[in-house]
Structures are given as structure tokens and as C-alpha cells.
Simulated assay, not measured.
Amino acid sequence: MRSEFKNRKTFEDRARDSAAIRDQHTNKVPVIVERSSSEKSLPILDKTKFLVPDHVTVTELIRVLRRRLNLAPGQAFFLLSDRGLPPGTQTLAELWESEHDEDGFLYVFYAAQEYFG
């Protein structure tokens, strides 16, 4: 999946931003959350850059994002990384460690349907 955030900012700017964030907030993870390019039914978040405490799990992040998007309880919502669907019990620190981009940000995408590829 291609990130709009990457299209808007140069690699150098992104790397500098993430390094500054990690230096100032050692117990937080810089995360970019974007709507999947193929997603049409879910609304777009009001912001894409999040600073998430490293102990927060993927499930907790999903709960926060669902609340920000004002989704109905039964509405489907999936959070995807480049490798697919991360385990809900995985912390953001663990996910960042295994899947962060070379610019230092963790990129995740949300969609109403689970898909891979």
C-alpha cells in the first residue's frame, strides 16, 4: 500500500521528524494511520500522524480509531500493516520494532474489509 504521507513529505523530512519524536518521547511510537487506497465506505481521519504510548496494543489503537471515526458498533474495521493483519495483542512497540519504515514511522492502513496484497 502506498502512503499519501510519503507522497507529501520527503524522506529526509520524515526521517528527521521521526527521529525528533523518538528522542523527545522515548516511550512513544510515531504512527502514520491512513485509509486504505481501495477503501470507499469509511471516512477519512482528521489527522494521520499519531504519537502512541509504546505499551498500547493494536486492539486498543483500533478502539481509539473507531471512536475518532464515529463508527457504529457493528461496522467492520480492520487495521493493516504492510505484512497484513497484526495480532490484536501485539503492542505498538513490538509492531514498530518488526515493521517500521526506514524513515522511522510505523505505517498502518484501515479498511472495512480484510484483504491482503
Rank of each mutant, 00 (worst) to 15 (best):
M1G: 13
M1E: 08
M1Q: 07
M1W: 07
R2Y: 11
S3G: 09
S3N: 07
F5Y: 15
N7V: 08
R8M: 10
F11L: 11
F11V: 05
F11Q: 00
F11M: 03
F11D: 01
E12F: 14
R14V: 13
A15G: 00
A19E: 10
A20K: 08
A20Q: 08
R22S: 13
Q24L: 14
Q24V: 00
H25A: 11
T26M: 06
N27M: 07
N27Y: 09
K28S: 12
K28G: 00
V29K: 01
V29T: 10
P30D: 02
P30A: 04
V31G: 10
I32T: 02
I32H: 03
V33R: 03
V33P: 04
V33A: 06
E34D: 07
S36L: 05
S36K: 02
S36E: 11
S37V: 08
S37L: 13
S37I: 06
E39V: 04
E39H: 03
E39C: 06
K40P: 00
K40D: 09
K40M: 12
K40W: 05
S41F: 04
L42Q: 02
L42I: 06
P43W: 03
L45D: 02
L45P: 04
D46N: 14
D46Q: 14
D46T: 08
D46W: 11
K47N: 08
K47M: 11
K47P: 01
T48V: 12
T48W: 10
K49V: 14
L51N: 12
L51F: 06
L51S: 13
V52Q: 07
D54M: 13
T57D: 08
V58H: 02
T59D: 15
T59R: 15
E60M: 13
I62T: 13
V64M: 14
L65F: 08
R66H: 01
L69E: 02
L71A: 09
L71W: 07
A72Q: 12
A72C: 00
P73K: 05
P73M: 04
G74K: 06
Q75D: 08
Q75Y: 01
F77M: 07
F78Q: 07
L79T: 01
L79M: 13
L80V: 02
S81V: 05
S81I: 01
R83A: 13
R83P: 00
G84V: 02
L85I: 09
G88W: 05
G88D: 09
G88T: 06
T89M: 12
T89D: 15
Q90G: 00
Q90N: 03
Q90F: 01
Q90M: 15
T91C: 07
T91W: 01
T91L: 05
L92R: 02
A93K: 09
A93N: 08
E94Q: 13
E94N: 10
L95T: 04
L95S: 05
E97R: 12
E97K: 12
E97H: 11
E97V: 00
S98I: 13
S98P: 00
E99Q: 14
H100Y: 07
E102D: 14
E102T: 15
D103M: 11
G104P: 06
L106R: 06
L106K: 05
L106N: 08
Y107C: 05
V108D: 06
V108L: 15
F109K: 12
F109S: 13
F109H: 14
A111F: 08
A111S: 15
Q113Y: 09
Q113W: 03
E114W: 12
E114I: 06
Y115A: 11
Y115V: 02
F116L: 12
F116D: 09
F116A: 10
F116Y: 12
G117Q: 13
G117H: 12
